[in-house]
């Protein structure tokens, strides 16, 4: 945490630059969405990577996660692991790679 005045002045500068960067990346996301990539999934992927990058900037610089106490990292690591479990298992349940098509399937 920036506590001395010089450090705070420095961080103000950083904040402004990051704010600008976020704006630029937002414009990029919008433009990208109108540019059709080979598949729409690819569009989604690139869009989400950009969004994640932006979110990372907000979390690291604005929420000063780049220098936070260990305890917070532990809590967040745990949370994010669970949130990801939530995402991926839902997807698996829609596309089951182990479906047994059956002995009597006439197409085989």
């Amino acid at each position: 945490m920036a506590d001395s005045p010089e450090e705070i002045y420095k961080s103000i500068k950083k904040i402004k630059i990051v704010g600008l960067l976020l704006g630029v990346f937002t414009i990029a996301t919008v433009l990208l969405s109108f540019w059709e990539l080979p598949t729409h999934s690819l569009n989604i992927l690139v869009g989400m990577i950009l969004a994640t990058f932006k979110a990372g900037l907000v979390a690291l610089i604005f929420m000063h996660l780049n220098h936070e106490s260990k305890m917070i990292y532990k809590i967040l690591a745990f949370t994010i692991a669970l949130a990801f479990a939530l995402f991926f298992l839902f997807v698996f349940s829609a596309h089951d790679p182990l479906v047994f098509s059956g002995l009597y399937d006439s197409n085989q």
Binding site: L89, F92, S93, D96, P97, L98, V99, F100
Partner: peptide, 16 residues
């Protein structure tokens, strides 16, 4: 999801 074996959510999920 071990409460959901009967929902037909898929064998891989069930195994996991």
């Amino acid at each position: 999801a071990h409460h959901m074996y009967l929902t037909g959510m898929g064998t891989m999920m069930s195994t996991y």
